[in-house]
Design a protein around this nucleic acid. Sequence first.
DNA 1: GTAATAAATGTAAAATATACGCTCATTCTA
DNA 2: TAGAATGAGCGTATATTTTACATTTATTAC
Lengths: 234, 234
Amino acid sequence: MTEITTDLYQVKEKMYVATDCIIFGFHEGKLKLLVFKRKVEPLKGESSLIGSFVRLDEDLDVAGRRVLKEATGLENVFMQQLKSYGKKDRDPGYRCISIAQYALIRIDEYDEKLVEEHGAHWYEIDQLPNLILDHNEMVQDAMYQLKHNARYKPIGFELLPEKFTIPQLQILYEAIYQRELDARNFRKKVLSLNVLKKLDEKDKTTSKRGAFLYKFDYENYQKLLTSGYNFEIA
Amino acid sequence: MTEITTDLYQVKEKMYVATDCIIFGFHEGKLKLLVFKRKVEPLKGESSLIGSFVRLDEDLDVAGRRVLKEATGLENVFMQQLKSYGKKDRDPGYRCISIAQYALIRIDEYDEKLVEEHGAHWYEIDQLPNLILDHNEMVQDAMYQLKHNARYKPIGFELLPEKFTIPQLQILYEAIYQRELDARNFRKKVLSLNVLKKLDEKDKTTSKRGAFLYKFDYENYQKLLTSGYNFEIA
DNA sequence: GTAATAAATGTAAAATATACGCTCATTCTA
DNA sequence: TAGAATGAGCGTATATTTTACATTTATTAC
């Protein structure tokens, strides 16, 4: 057996490695978080993020996607590592570190039944219940990260349906930044990024006139990225 | 025994948890990385980051600081979690995930003897040797993170001696960003941040006239932070 | 056909970033 | 001890970006 990672020490102790998922969604103009109810003791009935142990034959990111899929039915969504939480007594039962990963999902796409089976519930981001262990901290950190990332990468689009209007996009960014944005300036800015494809369709659910639908232009985004473009949004 | 973290699964498998340290320094106008030589098989003699298993009774960040101290003798330096590396086969010997943490140290402060004992060597950041396992990736990620962070948090100061001149600070930022900066604009910008205390001393090692020494003003920095100040540098 | 509603557009002022050249303080040496 | 040499330190003009703000337009409902 090879033993590679450490030079300094012989102290080799195994521990549990878990991953917890911070699942963001956007619905009715509100940024929301998917919160679960524990079904087993201890802390049965308490609110919590959804998580799982990482299996020995499973990549870390694969574990996150497995959890997400089992909780929501969704695959191929935006998911990114947030941070590891490794205080020695973070879990009172045994030593376990958790790598938190956060996902951005289109609420119209997830499987409600699956979610219900897990006792899940969407909460508005500023009306969250108290969560077990260090999950509150995870959510806070994820929220910070989301705000930060949304500013430089167009990840906001991951939370919207494939087709969306500029006003919808603005409301999303307002929810992320938790402040109001100027409609004219916002429109100017996002259009100037050249990553939106205007469609010939309109969405008329919010106005009589209707707002044009757009798609995110992944190809052009990639092209601009490699040419060293700056994507500061809003 | 309580079992808290997971709802979904009973699959509970322990694994090794390691931490690897990416140690940046700044010396002679160059950004450098501390690289170690493995002293044990397998891969004996290969270049590597320094790391250790995380102990069962040890917080994750404490483990990072322990490794850093044992490798360099330094405590109380800037250290921050980078990312977890968790591919199932990243270490050919056994399943082990590693949480990479990066440190910024003042090269004039570290204990050379300790470093030598570990077969360590400072490499310029653009002349690194090949490293074992996924350590190259860790360094790349850390470099990206450093560039990014240096832009919004005044972490650059962590790499300089306590007293430094503006031209020195500029050279550091040039090393981090890997491009030249305009001396007049750089000076204007950093001074406008109001986090530098000008001292009455001069450093005359690089010019006849001498350059005034400054200290980073942590107090004022904290004050400005809480008042929501924007710290974009360079 | 008119009232109502949100979508869409433009421009001027303020703030910020960039580009660029000269003087100053000090040391070295002739 | 005068003056040449060197990097430190400063200021201003221009370009770019951000902000603030008001009106018209397309469509539906009555």
